[in-house]
């Protein structure tokens, strides 16, 4: 086993965990905090929303200092909205990181690739470190990487659907042509989905609904943590080649005579 420390490096910062956790949809703050703990995550996503008492409670509940915050632009449809949200999050959280979400419609919440790319161009000029949530189009992923995104984040199926990997071949192409940080975002339903993604060689997984909406979020967070680690170890170990026929494992030599 390699003794080199396996770390996720984004924007020059090192992380032991490759699991990024969303903070939405949990039954309450206690379950949220315990789930984050069980997941061993170091990066959590947040939104920027109008001031209210619930938001005040969320932010002052002691999770502020422990995690690296990744603000998102969830709910934005246009470049204009996303740019302002990014500026507000930088002012609020003193971070240049922005998870850029630009959706095109309300039913499938699919990202709008053209609006996304145009917004990325602007944000790069403004020195933001972009985590670009995008469709699983290999060329789009490559173009976003070349543009200078800190991380490219293709979906594997629609947000919150839990459908898992819909196009494994596209994911394989993305991994083969993109050399930077690629984190799968959206569509994870079970730990086996997260494990499979990591076995394909992706740098990390971002998830929310699959934990928060499960029957036992704390236990599911733990399962996701183990799945991501397991998948990563599998990828680093190099799995065997698939064959059409059986390959004997127990040596035949020395077996007693056939009779």
């Amino acid at each position: 086993m390699s003794k080199k420390k396996d770390e996720l490096i984004i924007d020059g910062k090192k992380f032991a965990s490759r699991l990024i956790m969303g903070t939405s949809l949990y039954p309450n703050l206690e379950v949220l905090n315990k789930s984050l703990e069980a997941s061993a995550t170091e990066i959590i996503t947040v939104s920027m929303r109008r001031f209210n008492q619930e938001g005040e409670k969320f932010f002052l509940k002691g999770i502020k200092s422990k995690y690296t915050f990744l603000p998102n632009t969830a709910g934005c449809f246009t470049k204009k909205e996303a740019l302002l949200t990014a500026e507000l999050s930088r002012e609020s959280l003193k971070t240049e990181w922005i998870k850029l979400e630009l959706i095109s419609e309300n039913e499938m919440l699919l990202p709008d690739p053209l609006e996304l790319f145009a917004t990325c161009e602007e944000l790069v000029k403004k020195k933001f470190k972009i985590f670009a949530y995008c469709s699983d189009d290999p060329i789009l992923c490559k173009r976003l990487e070349e543009l200078g995104c800190a991380a490219v984040m293709p979906l594997i199926s629609p947000i919150g659907s839990g459908l898992g990997i819909r196009n494994e071949h596209n994911l394989e192409i993305i991994r083969s042509i993109c050399k930077g940080v690629i984190i799968v975002d959206a569509g994870i339903g079970t730990p086996s989905h997260a494990c499979k993604v990591m076995e394909l060689g992706f740098d990390g997984v971002l998830l929310n609904s699959s934990v928060a909406r499960s029957f036992d979020p704390i236990q599911m967070a733990m399962a996701m943590n183990l799945a991501v680690k397991s998948g990563r170890l599998s990828y680093l170990s190099g799995s065997i080649e698939k064959t059409k026929k059986a390959v004997r494992s127990t040596p035949f030599r020395g077996k007693i005579s056939n009779f």
Partner: peptide, 10 residues
């Protein structure tokens, strides 16, 4: 005027 703060998000 919009006054915003960090909130739950995915």
């Amino acid at each position: 005027i919009e006054i915003v703060q960090p909130f739950f998000g995915g």
